[in-house]
Amino acid sequence: MQATQPAFFKQGPKPLTRLLIFSTLSVALMVGDVHFQVLGRVREQVSFVLYPLQWLATAPFAAFHEARDFFTRQAVLIAEHRKLNDQILVARAKAMRVDALLAENEQLRGLALRQQQSSQGSRLTEILYSGRDPFSAKLIVDLGVNGDVKPGKIVVDTEGVVGQVVRVQPMTSEVRLITDRNHAVPVMVQRSRLRTVVYGMGAGQPLEVRYLPPNADIKAGDLLVTSGLDGLYAPGLPVARVTHIERPSGSPFPRIQCQPVAGIDSHRFLLILDNPPSPPPYPAASEPAAKGA
């Protein structure tokens, strides 16, 4: 019967046979794919053929997204730009604040250290503002009568002498800086033990040592420290460093310029020192306070 069947009816293998063949193939594919991972090539080939279809299927959506992006991009970008700008402003303000706090912290640490080291009692004070008078170098600090501050007390920072309390109000006090015009500090040259007086020359100006003989043992780079002779300044506090010595031919005295050691106008916190134990009274008359000339 099979042999007599005309070619017209020939359909190849029966459907069941085909199913068995292709199921076996499928299972082989699965085993090969899952257990042996050997079908990378097959996958590559098929996906190469499929790629145009995949591209075609996703192209309209991609184009739609592209178009939508194009139209929203402007608005989004502008909004985002604005937001980022705001954030930058806030962040920058914060960063500046952090920098300031860091510096302040550094100085407070130094002051605390100095407070521990110095045998004298001292009080920490904060600068409220600098004096408004342009002709004198003054600071206003936040301790007054309430902080047991008395005129004549010495004000220092971590590096050296800043000034002297000249006036005390209930809550504040006024500090005259050593750079104030004609403010005098009795000092000695640390290297040579030469005693002299250093004068202020006005706000923002260097200090000056006057009336030294031309052969005095002083040179640029010398450190001037308080001598303690006046009974107000404790001895040994750094005051200034000699920067420049000039010996003009027409003058009997050399001109000696010094730079204050302390950061006169760069800090927020200062230390007010208690007076050193007062020396025994001067034999003839009481010593005049070295409160400027």
Partner: peptide, 11 residues
Amino acid sequence: MLGQHTLAYSV
């Protein structure tokens, strides 16, 4: 996994 759709479709 390769073979998943092939088997289902064939059946």
